[in-house]
Amino acid sequence: MNRHFPVLLLGMLGLGPRPATAQLQVSGIRNLAFGTVIAGIPTTVTPTDPSRSGQFEFIAPTNSTVRLDLTLPTALQGPSAATMPINFGSSDGLIVGTAPGSVPTRFNPKSNRTYKLTSARNEVFLGGTVSPAINQPAGSYSATVTLTVTIQ
């Protein structure tokens, strides 16, 4: 058998040496969905909520150091210029890698974070609390959350 065959096979399976130029992928997976809320009653979604928490994913070379910045709104925009306050608590962020042994870490989404990556693929979850007023106009309220990933 050709002595290079095992190397070729690994390469075909995508298990070969890492390419010289690595890539970076950042994606929004799931929006932060509060759904229907009741006027006058604050509603909280925790970052561990399996269906309503916001979810981002980023893929970067293992061992690299990246900085994460979340740009968060303070209010949601609704019908006829109505607004609704939204707040993010100090443990409303959660990051977890996909490598074996990765431990989920809670973080303050209002603070910047620098991570030394032990997993190539990483997930960031986001929770928050909205506080509709007692006389909150009916309708849809929305805003945008931005995750910025900076590589050194």
């Binding site: 929004g28 939204i86 509709p132 309708g139």
Partner: peptide, 26 residues
């Protein structure tokens, strides 16, 4: 645009945040 879940005409209040991602490279 990500849909805000919920029935739109029920007179209720529906809330959702959409996601944006930014990558900064040198």
């Amino acid at each position: 645009t990500l849909p805000v879940t919920g029935a739109p005409d029920s007179g209720s209040v529906q809330v959702g945040l959409s996601l944006e991602v930014r990558t900064l490279i040198p």
